[in-house]
């Protein structure tokens, strides 16, 4: 498994494309389309968190939805209580990150094997689902926010201009926020991976024993990666809640946990663009299926996954990338030499 040879040129290209989408989309599609794309972006941020910890950190979290959902709920509860959305957004990142740090500490310092990390994270999101699902009634309120059990929390206040609770964001503002956040997260993760810290993270994925024999404490690195992943997922959850002004326990559910894995697998494990495109593509597919009655969405999703795992196991982006590499003359295709240079 090699990391895609995305030197700084590939990275700049992706960021450029992100900005074109950020400013271009509201010019060319209807308001409905922009709102639609906003939820795709929320899912893409979620997918980035999964793709980062799994594809680069080698951490098999099958319950990344725990942090996604936590971000959504933390935002909802705190914005209802505070009014101004500024601190709630930060809390929606910080609380899931802290929760990930706590959980990660027990997993990585407790020497839990990789497979059990998958089981534990999955269990955690199912527990959260059940707990939040059973919070109906007046008893379960935090400050002024009623958790609402399986009915969820409707009418969550939208984002606002920091410091001005009355200047609430409209759908287009929310789009700029969401897409801006996605670009920022991408730049942040790219930066981390390009740093020496990031090289060690990838080295741990390749061979944890060797990393430890070189004197690095792999547990600390994994803990940090998992914590960052938790914060990114939380931000995705915050965007998701803003998109519909609504959040319910299904965000913690199995479907949510599985969906993000599919985004990453389809887009390409071990890349960052892959999970983003995977999220966009699958979400688009689901939205098309949703408008007609013949096909069941879950069935199609399942079929897509099976097809990818069997036919394109590396995912879309690595395949397309190496295809381009074969078509272009060698010096443009990013040889190993250049990779080593770019990352050294």
């Amino acid at each position: 498994m090699s990391s895609v040879p995305s030197g700084w040129r590939g990275c700049l290209l992706v960021i450029l494309a992100g900005f074109v989408l950020l400013f271009g989309l509201p010019q060319v599609v209807s308001l409905y389309g922009v709102v639609q794309m906003t939820v795709f972006v929320a899912m893409a941020v979620f997918a980035l968190s999964q793709g980062f910890i799994w594809g680069f950190g080698g951490i098999m979290s099958f319950g990344q939805s725990a942090f996604f959902g936590l971000g959504g709920y933390v935002y909802a509860v705190s914005v209802i209580n505070m009014g101004d959305s500024t601190i709630p957004v930060l809390l929606a990142i910080a609380v899931p990150a802290a929760f990930a740090a706590l959980l990660g500490y027990f997993m990585f310092f407790g020497r839990i094997s990789d497979a059990y990390v998958g089981v534990i994270t999955l269990t955690v999101t199912i527990i959260l689902f059940n707990v939040v699902n059973s919070t109906s009634g007046d008893f379960y309120t935090i400050g002024q926010a009623a958790l609402g059990g399986f009915n969820g929390m409707p009418n969550v206040p939208p984002l606002n201009v920091p410091g001005y609770p009355d200047a609430a964001f409209g759908p287009i503002d929310t789009w700029y926020f969401a897409m801006g956040a996605l670009i920022l997260v991408y730049i942040l993760l790219r930066g981390i991976l390009a740093s020496r810290f990031g090289r060690v993270v990838v080295a741990i994925r390749e061979n944890e024993t060797r990393v430890q024999l070189l004197g690095y404490d792999a547990r600390v690195y994994k803990l940090l990666v998992f914590t960052i992943g938790g914060g990114v997922a939380g931000l995705g959850g915050c965007i998701f809640t803003n998109w519909g002004a609504f959040i319910s326990p299904t965000i913690f559910g199995l479907a949510s946990a599985a969906q993000v894995l599919i985004f990453v697998l389809v887009g390409g494990l071990g890349t960052l663009v892959g999970p983003v495109l995977g999220a966009f593509g699958i979400e688009y597919l689901i939205s098309i299926i949703g408008t007609q009655q013949t096909l069941n969405a879950n069935l199609v999703l399942g079929a897509v996954l099976v097809a990818f795992v069997l036919l394109v196991p590396q995912g879309l982006v690595p395949v397309v990338w190496s295809g381009i590499g074969r078509l272009l003359p060698r010096r443009f295709a990013g040889t190993g030499e250049q990779t080593a240079e770019a990352q050294s």
């Binding site: 390749e206 690095y216 050294s344």
Partner: peptide
């Protein structure tokens, strides 16, 4: 990692290298 930091390095019998990284990156890490 503690023992490695005390100045012990090992080439193991079954090679422990980073297969997915370049030669340069292996040594750089």
């Amino acid at each position: 990692h503690h023992i490695a930091r005390r100045g012990v390095g090992i080439k193991t019998q079954v090679p422990n290298v980073f297969n997915g990284l370049s030669v340069y990156e292996n040594v750089f890490v």
